[in-house]
């Protein structure tokens, strides 16, 4: 029978390996050897996935609000202050996934997956109808010494689907 202290060292080793894998998975990519990174992804991603990059390495220089066009000059955000906070968060994350934390191109092209998500959020306004238009409104910092100065910019959205 294995001694109690012997088992203790197995446990210390197992805990240390687990934490080391989490560290390799979440640390800046350049700091982790590629092979170790792959091992950590295989071990961590299925069950222990986590990310610690909120406002890191730098906070986003742009905010991005996705809006649905209700008429020629009328629009509203995909999720407003009256919506539950998790719905507002989904609208915010959609902007992030579409690259809205950096200056967007003149026209934002959105794939089918995210198009479905955007339309799903505004299904109460007929968002699933193909004719409905969308746009992104960005406010970007152009000088980090004056972050409160954020010129606004409207970016039309075009869907990749026919």
């Amino acid at each position: 029978m294995r001694s109690r202290s012997g088992r203790k060292w197995y446990v210390v080793f197992a805990v240390a390996m687990h934490i080391a894998m989490l560290a390799a998975y979440t640390a800046p990519e350049e700091w982790v050897p590629a092979r170790v990174r792959l091992w950590s992804q295989a071990y961590v991603r299925p069950v222990f996935h986590q990310t610690w990059g909120l406002f890191a390495p730098d906070p986003p220089l742009c905010s991005c609000e996705l809006r649905v066009l209700l008429g020629p000059s009328v629009s509203r955000p995909l999720a407003g202050s009256h919506d539950p906070f998790l719905v507002r968060r989904m609208a915010l994350q959609m902007g992030h996934y579409l690259g809205g934390t950096r200056p967007l191109p003149d026209t934002l092209v959105v794939d089918e997956r995210m198009e479905g998500a955007m339309r799903g959020l505004v299904r109460d306004t007929g968002g699933t109808e193909l004719g409905l238009g969308f746009q992104a409104v960005q406010y970007c910092v152009d000088d980090v010494a004056r972050p409160e100065h954020r010129p606004g910019r409207i970016v039309p959205i075009r869907f990749r689907s026919p």
């Binding site: 934490i19 989490l22 979440t26 640390a27 800046p28 700091w31 610690w52 990059g53 406002f55 890191a56």
Partner: peptide, 16 residues
């Protein structure tokens, strides 16, 4: 780990 990694990630940038 969460604190250490987020701190190191921030050191990796410039604005913090």
């Amino acid at each position: 780990l969460a604190y250490a990694i987020t701190g190191l990630q921030k050191l990796h940038g410039t604005t913090w």
